[in-house]
Write a protein that binds this DNA or RNA. Structure first.
Lengths: 142, 142
DNA sequence: GTATGTGCAAATCATTTGCATTCTC
DNA sequence: GAGAATGCAAATGATTTGCACATAC
């Protein structure tokens, strides 16, 4: 599998945009983060490594990474977006409680069957599956 | 099934809050809306009917409706939340394209099996299922 | 009567944008 | 050199909050 930087470089070329160090440093950092991240975290991690990229540039880069199929907007909580890289990384099935916001990842029961059928019927390439509902505790509170 | 106003009144009582005309008018309007809505739409619809409720009150009421299990945050697009009522309304399975944002509702293949199994395994009460991926057109563009 | 709720206007905060400067192609 | 990209600071826009007044219990 092509490294993500490579995928991005090809995307940039195809779009007729320019390769810049800033965007590649941000992308590299994103792929070193395990799990979800938000702009602030990303900015701080870069800063801590002595990499100076403005937030404006990060905000301008994220849509490109998304359009290149490298990341996705995972959720909008606490008033801002959280992202995660999706390239070369499977298992994005979560169960989220509408009451308390708890999130549980699951592989069992296999979401594969549904995904395969959806992929077949709608010709979608499936990336993530979010099931929303109420966890036992929140059902009890209701 | 109890009417939604009733469910809300019971919620209000249980929480030790007060019944107000404003909240009930907003709730009534929400249940007259078919499909998704956002705060602005809701505010305008109320205004058009000559019902004066401030946006601040709408913003303060929505979390209550959500906590009462009457509505859910459906998605955050165009910089703001879109909601939908979930009480007494099933079928919230959609397939959303990460590329272009297209949303397709589906019932076939049946998400029921997965939902039932999840409900059983995690004891969740399932409300909605969102599958994200890339539609045929966006896969072609990539 | 007291604690809540409302409306208004001001504040907040994530994100976006204008502009001068710097960098790719 | 021309068009893009960056950083900074200012603007934007949805949501939240302080406060004075009104209302439910």
């Amino acid at each position: 599998m092509k490294p993500e930087i490579r995928v991005f470089q090809e995307f940039i070329r195809k779009r007729g945009l320019r390769r810049t160090l800033e965007r590649e440093l941000v992308l590299q950092e994103i792929f070193e983060i395990h799990g979800h991240f938000d702009v602030d975290e990303l900015y701080l991690k870069l800063k801590q490594k002595g990499i100076k990229v403005s937030k404006a540039s990060i905000y301008r880069a994220l849509p490109l990474f998304r359009e290149a199929g490298l990341i996705r907007e995972a959720d909008f909580t606490d008033g801002h977006w959280h992202y995660e890289h999706i390239y070369g990384h499977s298992n994005h099935s979560h169960l989220k409680c509408l009451g308390c916001g708890e999130v549980v990842e699951f592989e069992e029961p296999s979401p594969q069957d549904l995904e395969k059928q959806l992929a077949k019927k709608y010709e979608y390439r499936i990336i993530a599956l979010e099931v929303q509902g109420y966890c036992p505790a929140c059902q009890r509170d209701a």
